[in-house]
Design a protein around this nucleic acid. Sequence first.
DNA 1: GCGATCAGCGGCACG
DNA 2: CGTGCCGTTGATCGC
Lengths: 266, 266
Amino acid sequence: MTLADACTAIQDGLRASQLILVVGRCKVQYVGRAASKLSEGDRLLVIKPDGTFLVHQNAKMAAINYQGPGARVVVEPIFDPNHSSPHAPVQLSVRAERALASGAKEFIDVRFYEVQFAQSFSLKDDTHLKLFGTEKELSTLLMHDLHLIEPGLQPLQRESDVRKGTIDILARDSQGRLVVIEVKRRGAGLDAVTQLSRYVHDLSRRRDCIVRGILCSPEITESSMRMLEEAGLEYYKLSYEIANPSAHIRGLQKKQKGLGEFAGEQ
Amino acid sequence: MTLADACTAIQDGLRASQLILVVGRCKVQYVGRAASKLSEGDRLLVIKPDGTFLVHQNAKMAAINYQGPGARVVVEPIFDPNHSSPHAPVQLSVRAERALASGAKEFIDVRFYEVQFAQSFSLKDDTHLKLFGTEKELSTLLMHDLHLIEPGLQPLQRESDVRKGTIDILARDSQGRLVVIEVKRRGAGLDAVTQLSRYVHDLSRRRDCIVRGILCSPEITESSMRMLEEAGLEYYKLSYEIANPSAHIRGLQKKQKGLGEFAGEQ
DNA sequence: GCGATCAGCGGCACG
DNA sequence: CGTGCCGTTGATCGC
């Protein structure tokens, strides 16, 4: 496929606001929040009607260069400066520009030397993904099953904002103490512990009372567990199943200090 | 394009370990770390030689469903069960399976009802992106210019592991105190403050001495600044430029408590 | 719009 | 391998 044909195909796709696919040998340059250079090689370029601009190599999930929705795409044939008359383009430049929130601009330039394929497609699609097993779902489930953690635990609020973030679940225990519960849908790391610790400290200072903190996650790393214990916080292993219309909590087990095993309360 | 032709095209691409592109009307189902359903609509499917599997809608940067490198892809024509004899497939199933680190498996099933386009491409590309302006680069630059923060500040180590994470820069000030420096390439939020706070507390406890903590970033949110001050930590506004072979630090300015303005030290 | 957090985060580097 | 953490993170939701 000639570069001139590719240029036309891309322009047609841009005008018609279609999905554009280009496969070819190119260099890529990016300047914006960071800067990058990618030397010659074969890549896939995807341009979506909303301005999304993706350069993919032949491996890995992530695009090697990209531009988010809202980018303005311009395609331009490059002619050999040695030839005074413009016969056939020797390169094809596909450029995406975009304004950052700060007002600064960023751009990508993909310079094709050879195009294997370029075509645009009309994609009719107004559907939205339905996702199950998110943290929000688990959190909602857990709030209605706080007795799994301990009897007498009463839910107060979900997603309550404190000055230093958003608490997943706020509850009160049988002795009237506030309990901050942080839910993680996957293994908890140090960040989860610092997060919970932040909420507990903030709340205990503001209300001037003792506040408990409980981390609930399917796993926790060893150093996170140590840090949690040092901070006087509690851990419950959260076991759950993902089902189609809605997830399902299998159980919660308190992890005992210094033991590799669990002692269930249920 | 018939579903049978699409099936052949995909199979050829899989056999030849090529990049495969499919555009068509499909449903998508996913079960694994979470679960999802996406009803009928037109999408782009990208399959890479390494098993990467991407389903893109006509908007947004992120793939709506995906599978990472290592997935095993199987394509299978589905025939109408009412017809005893297999004439033409009524659907085309493209399935990606993958084993998680935990040992559990996850899979996506893309069910095509109609295929506009299906073709595979050979992508020769062994290049790697060169990226400028990363945090690592800024951190290295800053370590050699600690005097920008204050005179007498001496670098000790970069990327030093403490029990609770990895310290960007460890230094010693003119009075012999340890200084933990956390560098962020973009605006700092609460997480950056908790991160720094974590390192400082850990180190001060382990060494049983006073440890200073300094956050360096181009911006910081108001609540983060408040939290930083409450924790007795310091903030320096980091101004930098991204240049081609290497980034360049323009300056560092200490942010004064309670003022919207800066008082430079330089 | 900014701000905080989640994500099926992905990817990397180091122990 | 896990653990930690950066990312041109992106995407969402609340203020």
